[in-house]
Write a protein that binds this DNA or RNA. Sequence first.
DNA 1: TTGTAGGCGTTATCAA
DNA 2: TTGATAACGCCTACAA
Lengths: 332, 332
Amino acid sequence: MATIYEVSKLAGVSLATVSRVMNNNANVSDATRKKVTAAMDELGYRPNSIAQSLASNCSNSVGLLVSELQGPFYGPMMSGIENTFRNQGKHLIIAAGHSDEEREKQGIEFLISRNCDGLILHVEAVSDDYLIKLSKGRTPFVLINRYISELSDRCILLNNIKGGYLAAKHVLEQGHKNIAYISGPLWKQDAKDRLEGHKQALAEFNLEFDENLLFQGDFMEASGYEGLKVLHQQTHPFTALICANDEMAVGAMASARDLGLTLPKQLSIMGYDNVFFTRHVYPQLTTVNYPINEMGRMAADWVLSHVYQKQTPPLQTLFEPELVIRHSISRQ
Amino acid sequence: MATIYEVSKLAGVSLATVSRVMNNNANVSDATRKKVTAAMDELGYRPNSIAQSLASNCSNSVGLLVSELQGPFYGPMMSGIENTFRNQGKHLIIAAGHSDEEREKQGIEFLISRNCDGLILHVEAVSDDYLIKLSKGRTPFVLINRYISELSDRCILLNNIKGGYLAAKHVLEQGHKNIAYISGPLWKQDAKDRLEGHKQALAEFNLEFDENLLFQGDFMEASGYEGLKVLHQQTHPFTALICANDEMAVGAMASARDLGLTLPKQLSIMGYDNVFFTRHVYPQLTTVNYPINEMGRMAADWVLSHVYQKQTPPLQTLFEPELVIRHSISRQ
DNA sequence: TTGTAGGCGTTATCAA
DNA sequence: TTGATAACGCCTACAA
């Protein structure tokens, strides 16, 4: 591999000059610039990014920690982020945290030890305190789907209260009065918020929230399946079921079939997230759109702006959900 | 950040010694080793991976190029790879090629310019020649789902002929005689192989392959939808449809519904890949399992073995597909 | 506008 | 078993 030194020799200039034309900032005369670029071409010179990083104390790499690399939710998020960064010559180092405190911490440690200039974190298990402490460190980070008041300017969020509200409102507008609900784990803020929005809509329609119709799931398909089974066994009747995410909704759909319910006639089901397979299930799932791709892009812009001092479109931290009406809710 | 220099001073030894205990290979006396580790702890020393990379000419990073970061196929692949590497302290730099020749090349260039020690490539658009030339370069790489005879030892493949055969055989065994087929783009080897296996099974049952019942799709959902529409319009009847991947199968299912066909009674549909949403569609899709997660792991092991000279489980390049029977094929 | 020289934090090669 | 010391390839004052 040719080095800057060989280029300088061939071009008959100094190291510094070559470096200058590479980072084409300083003032170099057109003549020498041409000589240098010609020499570079001739040698097939490629800068060594590691040496650049060491000398400039900037690795041009940003770390991304997600819970899972697979699954319908994280793909669009990573995609938005990768796209933004590649155009800027930054690269993405990816790690998975698996929603486990120890593994999330390890992942963050790992990313930091790799000299990432900045981090994008989608963490669930790690504590607020840990993140607040982390924020005092030298590696800046932005949080997706997590709110910590002390760090509010770096939290990119979906308005989940509104999302929960929109979902319930739509179901209510279709004439349903007895609505079951499968929530996420209620120690998670997003799960709590969605449920709160749900209750707001109910109140608006002068309906009480029936605790008997609540099942606490864990955002995974199996708990949706289990949830409907349990709800079906108790005595309070219901004509609609709202799930706090699409995976659980799909689990509930399978459960409904096993219970012999025809969808959506005998039971209306609503999801949340609008992951891509909601179009594929039958009946197609009515849900709430979570603009995760855009939020990923925004996180990348945050890093570009705060870590690399780049110009970006205006930063936005709060995103709004939207109702996506398909065929899983019947008129009552 | 503490450096090796400060550690050496505090421990009262030389730089070299500190470096030795870090890479705990050379022979260092227990006494000095303890002194050094104590000093490290006291200073909270963390090695600078960039400096290590520069000095050792090894970045401990491996590049992964996939077509898309989203979608059901690549998630499990990335997941298998990330997992293997993190345990080994290697990190994954991810780029997307979007099945476009220029962007794939750019991605590869990008990864190489980032000093990746090795590459895992899932490329579709780039030519054999390009890859052969690339193989002469200094960055080793392994290919997933691509066969080039000159590079056969680094091609990790699924036996697609057998997969196509298994799919068709199962349908035939259910008594179907007139089977339509929606293929992938036939310039792609995997699409060709799956179709070839299909024809083999047909021949075994003494049936002719009917060209009228072939529609060439592009592996995307929309072409499955379009494909069934077109096949339905022509005059040759069929009772089953085999699609060369799950996405097209799902598109075809939607098409079938729009055509008023009840599934699977009036039309049996078979997929390929066994992506996770095949369990969610209705009726659940019978398909062929593509062990992409394992193949990702294997690619990672290949890199570990060939690039980092690590001990790994025995390397395997050819993987076998398996039939996954669910509910989308009816007995004829 | 250009060149000189020191530094970035390690590893690795010699000697001792 | 240890310690000097020269790389590694580039950036960046500072000087010319």
